[in-house]
Write a protein that binds this DNA or RNA. Structure first.
Lengths: 239, 239
DNA sequence: GCTTGACCCTGCCCCTAGGGCAGGGTTCGA
DNA sequence: TCGAACCCTGCCCTAGGGGCAGGGTCAAGC
């Protein structure tokens, strides 16, 4: 009659799995024939299909064992629960697909949507990729330190970016990275930066937008995050 | 700056998983601070999110390691493949859900749709659950032995069931199970069975519908698959 | 009768992707 | 200054089998 291999084919399961179920006590060992081969009956086949159905649904074998001789009400409740889990897992896999698609480009996986929009804006303005990367890494650090604060800060920063003068300063500061440190434009730029800050402060909404400690960390974390021109500029702005 | 716990929260991963990625060489070990704590940078965060995204998509860590420093074209191809796998797995889970729903009742999980329809027909005719169970188990054994033959046999059997006389005999034979072995109706039934077989044979389409060896196996596999009345009936039919 | 390929047996070690716990040191906020 | 919350290494554990070794068995064809 039924050998282990045939039973395995019937149930869509490997021979090894069947032996495993015997070991775990899920499926009773059948009688053996004269040469020691296991000989199965239709009842084994029925039980095995039940085991396989639950196992393929991700139910741990220990739980399968319980369910095999649970009363119908318990079984019905358990099946509803398992079905729910399956639904969840399908939703998870779908989310995984969505994220996977974003892996090939863009920063949306690493920062909040608001920050990602901000980075896109910078790109639209013609900001260098180097600067964008420094920004991104800074925001990542801020978000890990405190997502709530980061959310507030990005909102402020985006308001700031609405100011044409600030945008101009941002771009010029970005361009200054490559200037020679004795470039005469640095002094002029430093003046405009100071003036702009003074103007903001006079309007009394003077909160520091960037936590300077964090900004420094972000700068340290990347090679090429500063330059001789920027160092000089910083000294000029400080006075 | 970034401790392992914060990094883990940011990436939606456990601390243990991060240490595991270090061991496997997926994520570079960061510098340690004076007390031996790991201190991470934004670059670690970016890489970790990539790892997590792939790992959540079910990519084995060894493969993740390869993909992390693959060229963009290879990566694009790999992502397409992984996405395909994900789609397959979603389809599998959906199938698992469908099968799970059938676990609570019915025989459709265990036999082919044709056999299941046949069993439903028997139920509709008022055949006893005991007989239906014997049929089901017989068909399971036949299907495990040879699905193709079983498909042919069930087609023949269903044709047979279209014959009102055969149906009547089937039902009476079923009912006879509980009769006393000396019941006078047994002899009459045996006659009708013999006549019916004779009629079929004369119409020259005389193929055995049931493989007798298999039928016997099916009968053996179940307790209560025979009775004193049936034993007597068998002797009467044989002559 | 003999061989050959497909089965079957037990027993052993291996894998993935971490989880859990022990036993100890560190940092931070009140 | 103290307790809670972190962090460190090291070790063992898990599910669900896969793979292989080393050996016995069965069925078909020659």
């Amino acid at each position: 009659m039924l050998t282990i291999g045939r039973l395995a084919d019937y149930a869509g399961v490997t021979v090894k799995a069947i032996r495993h179920y015997h070991e775990r006590g899920l499926l009773a060992e059948p009688d053996r024939d004269s040469s020691g081969y296991r000989r199965y009956t239709a009842e084994h086949a029925v039980k095995l299909v039940k085991i396989r159905t639950l196992a393929h649904a991700g139910v741990p074998l220990a739980r399968v064992k319980e369910l095999l001789d649970a009363d119908p009400d318990t079984l019905t409740a358990a099946i509803a629960e398992i079905d729910h889990d399956l639904e969840d897992r399908i939703a998870q896999l779908r989310r995984a697909r969505g994220q996977l698609a974003q892996l090939r480009g863009g920063d949306r996986l690493f920062v909040s949507p608001e920050v990602a929009d901000h980075l896109d804006d910078l790109r639209g303005l013609g900001v260098s990729e180097r600067a964008i990367r420094v920004e991104r890494d800074g925001w990542i650090l801020m978000q890990t330190a405190s997502p709530e604060d980061a959310a507030l800060w990005i909102a402020e920063k985006r308001e700031l970016m609405a100011d044409p003068e600030f945008r101009a300063l941002y771009l010029e500061h970005d361009a200054a990275y490559d200037w020679p440190p004795d470039d005469p434009r640095l002094a002029a730029l430093a003046d405009r930066i100071r003036n702009w800050f003074a103007g903001r402060h006079s309007r009394s909404e003077a909160r520091p937008v960037h936590n300077p400690a964090i900004a420094r960390l972000a700068a340290q974390s990347l090679p090429g995050a500063s330059s001789p021109a920027w160092d000089r500029l910083a000294r000029l702005v400080e006075g």
